[in-house]
Amino acid sequence: MRGTSAQAAHWALRSARELTPAGLLLATLVGLWELWVRLNGTQPYILPAPTRIWDAFLQTRGTLPDHIVTTMSEAMLGLAIAAGAGILLAAAIAVSPLLRRILYPVLVLSQNIPLVVMAPLLIVWLGFGMAPKIVIVALIGVFPICISTSEGLLGADREMIDLVRGMGGRTWATLRYVRIPAAVPAFFGGLKIASAYAVLGAVIGEWVGASSGLGIFITRAQASFRVDRVFVAVIIVALISIALFAAVQLAARLASPWLYIRQNDE
């Protein structure tokens, strides 16, 4: 276990160095924005200055955490359901050509129902709570996860499958020793795409109707022309999205260490 913490420190340092140029660019843009608003005397309900957005953040600090928890829970639960359902559907597609022919068109079709139509309907069916938002996130996420996982399962090396069959392994053994491990990176590829849209999906759901969450926070802020608060919420949504994406990325690394040998240099 030599130097796990040293490794972590090294990793943190490297990511910090990698992020520096982007950070500098962002800081410059924010500075220019502040300058622009001050010089032109732009009204805050048109475009609030960064400092004003910061003030709005400080004012809403008390109520924000509840909204954040709601939105994050919806996003994460929805992702978890998408992952579970995506894996099950992918397995069905991988083991049965008939199921594949049935499920593929349905899945593609499901991606073509506009969310703006879906969201109000789901709220009518499931109420104003977290349930309809979780369903929306799951609906968005299940497609990339299922498609990518099933391709991983089906695309496994034929000769490796034959190797296990040659050892006397049946369908289950080929799944366990070859197809499933071969599909792990593909699954995480799908999960990454799903996670990038998860928070947005939850927010859109809340936007249509909710009692808690960043989406309803935005609706209320807009209704009272508090554009600064809208910005606060948007920034938080972006930060949560990034955090979720990074968490999935980390999980992918942990679950498929053989793909990161050179980087780990272990």
């Binding site: 090396d157 000769e159 490796m160 034959d162 190797l163 069959r165 040659g166 050892m167 006397g168 392994g169 020793y177 070859v178 491990p181 071969a182 792990v184 498929s256 053989w258």
Partner: peptide, 18 residues
């Protein structure tokens, strides 16, 4: 009827995830 012999294919076919 696979499984009756110990068979070493021409390629090593090591599983990269093990």
């Amino acid at each position: 009827r696979p499984g009756l012999v110990s068979y070493m294919p021409q390629k090593d076919l090591l599983l990269p995830w093990r």
